[in-house]
Amino acid sequence: MTTTFSPQRIGTVLVALALLAAPLTLGGEEYVLRVLTVGATYAIAVYGMNLILGLTGQLSLAHGGFFGIGVYVVGLLTTDYHWAFWPSLAVAVVATAVGGYVAGVVALRTHEEYFAIFTMAMGFIIFLVISRWESVTHAHSGVSGVKFPEGFGAVDFSEPIVMYYLVLVFLLGAAYVTYAVRRSGIGRTLVAIRTSEDLARSIGVNVGLNKQLAFAASTTLAGLGGGLFAAVQGFVGPSAAGIDLTFEMLMFILVGGLGTVLGPVVGTFLVLFLFEFFQDFEAYRFLVLGPIIVVLVIFAPRGIVGYLNQFVGRVRSRRANGSRNPGRPHDDRKAESTTDVKEAL
């Protein structure tokens, strides 16, 4: 059904172009560029949340904690232990992958709300360790002087704009993985688990193993985002592992669209933009943002990207129904889900 010029494709191209062109059009506004780069590191982690929540249907609230592990592995290795950035990032990725897999063994014995509560406790423990283990993590003094990635040739990652494009490469990678997973049997497996574990089991899906792999993949992306975040910020503290961060990411994905390919990036940048816009309100910004987000979730429960997909799908099926099978009554559910299942971007 996806033709070369399908609205989804055009949407993807537009988002990609906007991300590529953003630093150029900002004319050297360092602050905005920094916000964008930090946003991109969050968005990578949000793609992780999308795998476990959007595709597999498990609400993991340990996500900020795993982001924090990535932040602190890179932060501490490149400063106290004088490692180079790249091997530190590799350790962060492996640590969050293994950590996620092992944690998943225990966490996935619980279901639904218990899983959410369990992972929230897990996230909180990670936060406590980071914010209290003074001799290793420096607790509230944080870590400063985190190294930039080592460049090669003329590529110098201490240039903010170069760093931005580096993070963007990883972000596009995360989006592509989501796209590939959604289109493949693996995506079908995860969605099957989300829809009905019993039915998934009856068609031969190893529910436990797949949930665990999805959970590990999600924490790995959190660790990757965290490791990049540490390098972008240079200075990091325990708030980079906090439960607040988990809920911010949850908000990003709900606004963007659960389970979609573009939702994480669209939601992250949009909400961050709103955060910045209402920055002057300081702590009160949630008074304004809260209602905006509630309204969004009420009117577009599938998120912005989900809403657009649904809209496109409906127009398309109306057209298709007009020409192909005039006999069959128009059905909204059909419209939603052609896009939802097959080509939601």
Partner: peptide, 26 residues
């Protein structure tokens, strides 16, 4: 799988006979 199409439902039945991995998909 109620919100999926009939075809996608039946395609899910193929999961158990599929050998390709995430890496193949990516």
């Amino acid at each position: 799988f109620e919100d999926a199409t009939v075809l996608d439902n039946v395609l899910s039945g193929r999961i158990v006979r599929s050998r390709s991995t995430v890496f193949d998909a990516v």
